[in-house]
Simulated assay, not measured.
Amino acid sequence: MPAFDPAKQPADADAARALLDRVLVDTEAFGPDVRRSSPFESRPGRWPVLDADCVWQTSGLPPGVLATRTRYFHIPAGDGRGRVRISATVTVHRDPSGSGWETAQAMEEVLRCPQQVLGAGERLQNLWGASLYLGEQLNGWTEDAFSESGEYVGEEDGGPHPYVWSQGQFGPVTMAVAGRGAAGVTAQAVRALVVQGTSRMMLQAHGALAKEG
Rank of each mutant, 00 (worst) to 15 (best):
V195T: 11
R94Y: 02
G31Q: 01
G60N: 10
A130P: 00
A182G: 04
M175I: 05
F30G: 02
G184M: 09
E28Y: 04
G179E: 02
R46L: 15
G80M: 02
L193S: 08
Y163P: 01
G179C: 10
I75S: 03
R85T: 11
R43F: 03
P96G: 03
W128Q: 13
P160M: 10
A120P: 01
S199F: 08
L132K: 12
L66Y: 05
G213Q: 05
W165I: 00
V92I: 15
A15W: 04
I86V: 14
H206Y: 15
G171W: 10
F4D: 00
A192S: 14
S59R: 14
A67T: 01
V190S: 06
P114L: 08
Q9N: 15
P44Y: 07
K8A: 14
W101F: 10
R22C: 00
S97W: 05
A52G: 03
P63T: 08
F170W: 05
A18V: 01
W47C: 02
P114G: 07
D79H: 12
E156V: 11
V117H: 04
F146Q: 05
G150E: 03
V173I: 07
V177Q: 06
P44C: 08
R94Q: 11
D95G: 14
M202L: 15
V164T: 07
P96R: 10
Q105I: 10
P62L: 10
E148Q: 15
R83S: 10
F4P: 00
